[in-house]
Amino acid sequence: MPGSFKTEGVVLRSIRYGEADRILHLYTAERGRVNAIAKGSRRPRSRFGGRLEPFFRLDLMLHEGRSELCTVTGAATVDGYPALRADGDAIDAAARGCDAVLRLLDSAEPNRAAYGLLCRYLALLDRGAGADGADAAGADRHAVGLAFRLKLLLASGFAPELGSCARCGEREGIVSFSGAAGGVVCGSCEASGFPVSAEAHRFMAAAIGGPIAELPPVSEPARRQVDRAIGDTLAHHAHVNLRAVA
């Protein structure tokens, strides 16, 4: 329905448009994915200042007209994550996280869990910025990125089955992961999957079930398996291909 509305949202992507405008891809708390135009926002004296850059968490006033794009009429900063912006690796991790949200959550349906997760992830990157590849709690930023994606799968309804074999329900002898089956598979059903170590399996379960800041340590080979498990799950069930986590 045309008219103005308020919502909180995160800028996922900002595209230069025309002489001084920007088109914003937003993920909002109340309306899910929203695309909007911010007129004149690239002018140095714009009243929006620099707060329409990617990763800003904002209180937004948007006007919905007949066009597919809303118009940004007001924006106040909830969190600008300034430390994140001063760390090249943290910017890269945040951009890949926002890209995952862009590709996976493209509907205008609100998803509070996904919105909260995105805000917490950006806050975690901000607190750990400048700490040489580790987050605030000392966890590896790459592992945190994987945990974010696993939780995003959960929030979007694509969480893999990790408790028992996704084909036969067997709880023991888990040896593989199958994107087609939608989770881990046992030795008898392993034909469709790729080998997954106990360490990778434990990491996935901990990442989905526990706080993102309390991840168990994970080795490089196990990380690669987790990354592949996420990629295969999304490719089979959401028809989405994500960029590598790092």
Partner: peptide, 16 residues
């Protein structure tokens, strides 16, 4: 801050 701009419109990162 851009010359001639109002402080009240500056975002927190720029002002910081």
């Amino acid at each position: 801050l851009p010359v001639g701009a109002d402080l009240e419109h500056a975002d927190e990162v720029t002002l910081g």
